[in-house]
Design a protein around this nucleic acid. Sequence first.
DNA 1: CTGAAAGCGCTTACAG
DNA 2: CTGAAAGCGCTTACAG
Lengths: 352, 352
Amino acid sequence: MVKGKKSVHSSSQKVTVIDVAKAAGVSKSTVSLVLRGSTNVKAETVSRVNEAIRALGYVYNRDAAGLRNRESNLVAIVANDLANPYLAQVIIALEGELEQQGFMPVVVNINESVERQATMVESLKEHNVAGFFMTPAPETKAEWLSALADAHPLICLMREVEGATVPVIKPDNRRGMYVATRYLIGLGHKRIAFVGGMASISDYVERREGFKDAMREAGLAVKEDDIETSSTKRHGGKIAVNRVLDRDDSITAVICFTDVVAYGVYTALRERGLTPGKDIAVVGFDDLEDSRLMSPALTTVRVRAEDIAQMATERLQQWRQNQQIPDNALVDVELVVRSSCCLVGERAGGLA
Amino acid sequence: MVKGKKSVHSSSQKVTVIDVAKAAGVSKSTVSLVLRGSTNVKAETVSRVNEAIRALGYVYNRDAAGLRNRESNLVAIVANDLANPYLAQVIIALEGELEQQGFMPVVVNINESVERQATMVESLKEHNVAGFFMTPAPETKAEWLSALADAHPLICLMREVEGATVPVIKPDNRRGMYVATRYLIGLGHKRIAFVGGMASISDYVERREGFKDAMREAGLAVKEDDIETSSTKRHGGKIAVNRVLDRDDSITAVICFTDVVAYGVYTALRERGLTPGKDIAVVGFDDLEDSRLMSPALTTVRVRAEDIAQMATERLQQWRQNQQIPDNALVDVELVVRSSCCLVGERAGGLA
DNA sequence: CTGAAAGCGCTTACAG
DNA sequence: CTGAAAGCGCTTACAG
């Protein structure tokens, strides 16, 4: 119907290898050979075929080919939330890697919904993808994920699903926050809050533990009240830090679950008449492109999106080639010091 | 090879309609009928088939089906830059609409590169997509785009390509900036700068003209120096406003090409010791989620991503059903007043 | 180096 | 309501 006779499209009659073969005066097997880049075809024949392809406007039908040889160049990137700028950076890096390897990356957004995740993955399976990258939605079942990995190469990014036998590539969250916290302690801070994020995200727990590790090591107390969860959005950071400060204004530094959360903290501080980086130190996690452009420029834990993409792609290849489930990987992390952390007491109004 | 005997995957032997037919004790035509939801099958048979499908773990092969009936549920969203948060909002809205209509949206990011755009679109064609949404890369050739639209339903979003016969859905850019500028003029501003964006983006020209319309109408001069182009990133806004202010600090208000540019302007102002919304008025365009969370909350021109998505999807359907190229559409625009615009003279240091 | 034949997993008339 | 047959556009051995 769509491609019927009434079509406004000029190419309503699909041209196939047979047409190309006819035009080039060879058999369709030969056309297939040159399509696939075989070296066993005379150069002159190759160019005659290519000429015919061009002249007829032939478009390779990858679905038909895939049906026959059971191959697919489609790789799915199942993203939990396209509005997350860090994830966007990871996706961009992933696309670069995958294309170099001849894959066709397609991204599908699930908006943090397990239901959408299930629907989308089902469709993707119907389209015979070569593999999956995914940042699983909260509440993803381990059995579901394991079953998927049983039938398709699958690499998890950033987030872990407890009990699932699936390789995951993630930042060294715990060490990252440990290093950031030690830095703040070195600046003289003793009353440090940890804001943003929630326990249903595996990253969260690891980052929080890194924070606690450093505090414990320095003999500093962490009160329940110094930790405030929230959504991972900007708004979450704003709300969370306000709660903490309302309870106790002796806090001199705030460690944020992510850079986005830190942006929300900046806003909240300004609305309270405080200047981030002067009155209160702020640290983030991710190192988004924007973070060096904030005022003050945000001190944060950098996790190179390129590193994640590279390790993930490597592992997908490994899986496809060796039929072996690859190992997990912890991506290196680095503290980037900018201007959002004052020495304690420098201007701070707290007790410290 | 991937699915060979050595496969670690449990489902190495693909189960097909034939297996299902055998298990259910019917012919494969019948299986196909229930797969496609035909009403001409006995209810009891339907459930027996579905039972077999479940038991065998059958997954529908959409490529094989598409090969036969020339249909596809794949819709491509070709995005110029995934890191652009407004585009992310549009994509999310688009995905919602498309899924409701039974399509499978896949997004492909081209990172503002015409070359990548060409490669990706070629691949997408090979995968037989039902249609394209795209925000064309800068420098896209009209003939290329028209040729694509000749063979596939295609709707352009946000950006127009001069000379291409392709429907485009975009905000009423000119009116948006006109309204914003009038608002500023009403607040007493006379020295208003327009920063960010560049002429190779069709949006840019329209927005700038809207600004000029309002200024002209009010009998206010616009000097060359009051308009400064830049990248559409945050960094661009920062640089552009600095240039303008370095040349002439009598400026009391800044209209930004987008919200993202406005965020960069905020940073630049702070670094100059100025408070946005007090010392200088700032207006954006888009109304990103974050804009109401900035400090001060950003006054901006709202363009509902949902409206764009809805009009775009409607038109794609129309195209597919009537085989008729639909009209362009201008999406309504609305000024959202928040706290980033002072009355002139209220605190401003300029001449005004 | 090239050609004829079979088959990938579906759907579509067409008989029954 | 169900079954047998042909065909979508490719690729893969297998002969020549």
